[in-house]
Design a binder for these strands. Structure first.
Lengths: 174, 174
DNA sequence: CCAATATAGTCTGTCAGGCAGATTATCTCG
DNA sequence: CGAGATAATCTGCCTGACAGACTATATTGG
């Protein structure tokens, strides 16, 4: 009997040599599921999930420029152009010339944009809650923290925005 | 001269109701980053990252049928058809008629397929390691465990296949 | 045992969406 | 001031996803 099975200790991890790619698979499944749910919720928005992500990024993170917004979301510049076109057209966002660099546009939300996003955020929060229903509240918090930490570590530019935000105001439930 | 600098008040732009969508964003960033890295590693494979995922799923999870394989990876069945065509053509996988249900095909890896995957798995493991370099080893393990748990909770069908497979032992060549 | 319906996989055609490359306006630096 | 870089936009092509039809087999009810 070949005993390359080193299961002598319960603290031993159960999947040592096996598939390394649980990570990729898990991320894929979760993101797909997240997208599906958020899609349902954002059906009215110009571009579904992506629209939500754009709007959320603009309002919550206020990236200085269109390009940085695109980079943050991993979207091509040329794509970002027509995504924003639609939002402007719908009166949810505005393009303003950056006074200091007239090549750049500052993307700012309209009041309606803010309102719409607030509603969506609530709905999305619900969806996420449901998505993670298999995890205990503590586990969820840990997962979110680790995910964000990992993502921030690899993200192209943000990082300190998020870090600061987290330091100043951690998610407090009122 | 119109200086609408409305951003001087620190209390003006807080992140009042903590953005719920860190989840979506984090997942997106990480998956994108994972894909990029794995893409580099899987450049020789028929369909890049996706090819890797297919091959890994076939070998590690041995889904009974083509359809279930597709479902597991969130790929359309018509797409799965031509993905597999390529793999068969390259001699990495084989389609065999399921003896019990002759409509179905059992997808089995060739020896070469296994070998190729083994190499890739090693490389991917390295890439993942690098990807999560911002996290301490303990944190990584926790993250992976939680991710997998969450994903399994929402995954369409697998769950018990994977669970059973893991419990019984890694796929010993049948 | 036959007919009807369901399911696994494949094939075909269509179409949106993404990306490369050119274009315009502006900035920066020598 | 001219040369090169950068933000955003515009144009056109082309891949790749999905819908729907089709074949082969399974299942079920009469």
């Amino acid at each position: 009997m070949v005993e390359n099975v080193t299961t002598r200790d319960p603290a031993d991890l159960p999947l040592p040599p096996a598939s390394p790619s649980t990570l990729g698979w898990s991320l894929g499944v979760l993101l797909r599921e997240w997208s599906d749910r958020v899609e349902k919720v954002s059906r009215d928005l110009p571009h579904g999930v992506r629209g939500y992500q754009v709007l959320a990024a603009v309002v919550h993170d206020a990236p200085p420029t269109q390009a940085s917004l695109a980079a943050r979301l991993g979207i091509d510049r040329t794509v970002m152009t027509y995504l924003l076109d639609k939002f402007v057209q719908c009166g949810l966002l505005e393009r303003r010339q950056d006074p200091v660099d007239r090549r750049a546009r500052r993307i700012v939300p309209t009041d309606q944009g803010r309102r719409v996003l607030a509603d969506l955020d609530a709905a999305v929060a619900g969806a996420e809650d449901e998505l993670l229903s298999g995890l205990a509240p503590g586990e969820r918090r840990v997962l979110l923290a680790l995910l964000e930490h990992a993502a921030s570590g690899t993200a192209p530019d943000e990082d300190r925005c998020a870090a600061v935000a987290r330091t100043i105001g951690p998610p407090r439930h009122a």
